[in-house]
């Protein structure tokens, strides 16, 4: 059996072909008549005011932050899950501690209102 990832590579190439071919075909089919009004950004019909790249609030960042922590946690739990049948009982205990510490992190974020949409 060959490397199973070859198929993933092939699928990446094939999937890339879809937007490339689609946009290529559309390029020939569609009209090209740009004007400044078409190209202005949409703002419910009124003239756009200022740059779109305004500053946003930090709570978005905090959600991403909590996500990173739990994402990394899940990375460690996947191999544990696969090897679970080959591990003695104490492995379950270790993972309960592991999860409990991170559950504490969730509780902390919760109590500090970091998970509150303001």
């Amino acid at each position: 059996m060959q490397n199973p990832y070859i198929f993933v590579g092939i699928l990446v190439l094939a999937a890339l072909l879809l937007p490339v071919v689609g946009l290529g075909v559309a390029w020939f089919l569609r009209p090209h008549k740009p004007n400044p009004f078409k190209q202005s950004t949409y703002e419910c019909g009124i003239e756009p005011i200022g740059d779109a790249w305004v500053q946003f609030k930090v709570s978005y960042y905090i959600y991403a932050l909590v996500f990173v922590v739990f994402d990394v946690e899940s990375v460690f739990l996947f191999p544990w899950a696969v090897a679970y049948n080959f591990l003695p009982l104490y492995a379950l205990l270790e993972v309960i501690i592991f999860v409990a510490i991170l559950f504490f992190a969730l509780v902390y974020a919760w109590r500090k209102d970091a998970l509150k949409w303001i």
Partner: peptide, 23 residues
């Protein structure tokens, strides 16, 4: 990249939602 306030706000919301439910 859209240079649009709604698009940026929508992207922020979308990403917050996607990462929250990924866990």
């Amino acid at each position: 990249s859209s240079n649009n306030k709604y698009a940026l706000l929508g992207a922020f919301r979308a990403v917050s939602q996607l990462v929250s439910y990924e866990i």
